[in-house]
Design a protein around this nucleic acid. Structure first.
Lengths: 129, 129, 129, 129
DNA sequence: GTGGTCTAGACCACC
DNA sequence: GTGGTCTAGACCACA
């Protein structure tokens, strides 16, 4: 399904969240699709079940997935996209840091813009609606 | 000089690093400028000298500043800017995450691009050279 | 595991780094081996956990070890061994100083060469490959 | 005469000592030669007179130079070369560290040996007597 | 005055 | 359990 890097500085549960979001945005995972159970997932990516559970709980809290008692976990149909001012400020601040890091890494403005366009394509042009 | 948020999830020493980079890229701090001493800075931002020291050490490792024994710490000339493939991949991956988060926060592609242009201006058009 | 001299002029954290490198090069520590935890090591060598942590961090930065979140620290596979020009110059300069000091200490050229060969044997002929 | 690097991790006074020893061993400075005064030297290499003084004192303690009251400082005629067991052990230990660092930097055994021979030539074959 | 090292002890996130 | 961060306070070498 995807791979996680236990050596990475970002926590494993966060890596799972990110990967799941990516799969959803790319359309690999569609609304209504059933996710692997916590146990299945934990053996697939070689992680502690508690860690997977934590990721699923957070994804559920964010509304991306839903748990149906006894049936399993599914990709949620409702894509909320609430405009949370606080969240937007955080993202803007993160973007600022990326720009600064990119400058020090010698990356050009155009390169970043190109990457963004590529990613938008990759995401099936999820933006622009 | 700048402010630190001790409640933030990002460690104080990282906040210092980010702020310093920003001051440098904006031209507020110029090559050769003397930084506040570890003790001065620690009292300015109300943090432990060790925490400031950790930030300074990391900035030195990255080549942004240099310390002259017994004299203090100074903004370096930054001759490097070597293209580190690994670093570039990390930045690209971070950008990807930003894009994903932005999508879920309901931010438009154009909005992100506008922010990028604004930041480039703010950074005295450090890019493009 | 090894001993540290708290009276030595070389910092404890550097002594740890050196000893660990030596254990690795001698084959006592093999890739994948788990290192003592920071707390274990600190009680073993009677030093502060922070000091051990500093040594581990530096070893990780150099790529000799890697930490798996919440699981511990392990000897890494060491795929790198990239030829860093700057690093090589530093080593050459250090060698020059050794030669000068050896001359003033009355040590012969042959003696140094013999020591080098002995060490190479001790290191399981790590060189020459 | 020579240059010192205020950014280096090795103290300035030690850098001076090393450079002086190197000049002596290379034959640039010969027994009886007059050294620049502390003030001259400090302005030449842009360092604090106290720092130069500290270096001169240490060199005098080691017997490499001599101060004649009111006349100045001169390269000493007596090259002692006392076989100090403790000093020899220290040098051997330093050599061991160099070998370890060289291994991790990917430098070959032959390369080190070649450097040693080159340096010996540079030192006017000071060794081999 | 400067930064570098170390200790003791605390709290936290992650697994 | 693991390592990561932070504080308070100490001592030292260097310039």
């Amino acid at each position: 399904m995807f791979e996680i890097d236990p050596r990475s500085a970002t926590p494993i549960y966060e890596q799972i969240i990110k990967k799941m979001k990516e799969l959803c945005i790319k359309g690999v995972l569609k609304p209504g699709d059933k996710l692997p159970s916590v146990r299945e997932m934990s053996s697939m990516i070689i992680a502690n079940p508690n860690t997977v559970s934590k990721a699923y709980k957070e994804l559920e809290r964010e509304g991306l997935i839903e748990t149906l008692r006894g049936r399993g976990t599914f990709v949620s149909k409702m894509v909320q996209k609430k405009l949370d001012e606080e969240k937007i400020e955080i993202i803007k601040e993160e973007l600022r840091q990326i720009m600064i890091d990119a400058f020090y890494a010698g990356i050009s403005f155009e390169q970043i813009y190109q990457w963004m366009k590529d990613m938008n394509n990759e995401f099936a042009n999820a933006f622009h609606k």
